[in-house]
Design a protein around this nucleic acid. Structure first.
Lengths: 126, 126
DNA sequence: TAATTGTTATACTATTAATATAACAGATAA
DNA sequence: TTATCTGTTATATTAATAGTATAACAATTA
């Protein structure tokens, strides 16, 4: 599980970190129960601050991706990630809608959009 | 063309404004060449500051959705919105990828995801 | 001449992102 | 016992962004 950060990006560091861990779980590079580095170890490894890693971990915990034991450390949720519920579908729609609106304006067909999504799904099913 | 803002939202006001104008173009509620309110008029109408509207307009201009004539006002691009190019496809992928990664983690199948996209596309082709 | 247009400039408040230290409490290893 | 490591909490600072508030400018139009 490699993590690469773009410190010049407009995307906050903690968001990049969150998304890469989520991608790692989706690609099964990270398995349920598997340990993640401590906040201090990962911060040192990535050359960033302890609190930036902690912010990413706290949000991942809040969303059910990981568990944090006070003295044992951080692990990928052994029970798996909570399944999509109605709230998640609503939030997902709200995130995708502006992307589709812009695509429609720019002449992207539904088939082209679906093909792009298909290719991205394939990245997670290797 | 109705615009509704959620001043409590974490989404910046100028972003909400941008997205609703883009959605208006996608739904053909706004046609090429059609005039938009002046920055002052729209700001007064929405109860927000002139500069917030101006920021949205400037970004829409930068991305080719609208034209701004110094004394004539603001119009939807009469030549239509620039078609998707390689850069746009790359940016679109980067925005969709984390959404798909999270969906995969939460047990959403590709078919379910595609169906959601299909329904959203349908909103723009009524 | 007066009003309206986009534009620019300055200033201020509030929030967020990121960093820097420091300390605490509980568990574990020497 | 002591030292170390864990997540956690607290405080402080810097930088950037979002939003607002005025004010003024230049060009067009009524």
């Amino acid at each position: 599980m490699f993590i690469t950060l773009d410190l010049e990006s407009e995307e906050p560091i903690y968001t990049q970190l969150k998304n890469q861990i989520i991608a790692g779980i989706a690609k099964k590079e990270l398995s349920p129960g598997e340990a993640l580095p401590s906040v201090r170890a990962l911060a040192a490894d990535l050359g960033i601050n302890l609190h930036t890693v902690n912010k990413a971990y706290q949000q991942l915990k809040q969303e059910g991706f990981i568990l944090i034991h006070r003295q044992k450390g951080v692990v990928i949720n052994p029970d798996g990630v909570p399944k999509a519920d109605a709230v998640y579908w609503t939030e997902l729609s709200a995130k995708i809608r502006p992307l589709i609106a812009e695509s429609v304006c720019k002449g992207v067909s539904e088939a082209e959009f679906q093909e792009l999504c298909h290719q991205i799904f394939a990245e997670f099913y290797q």
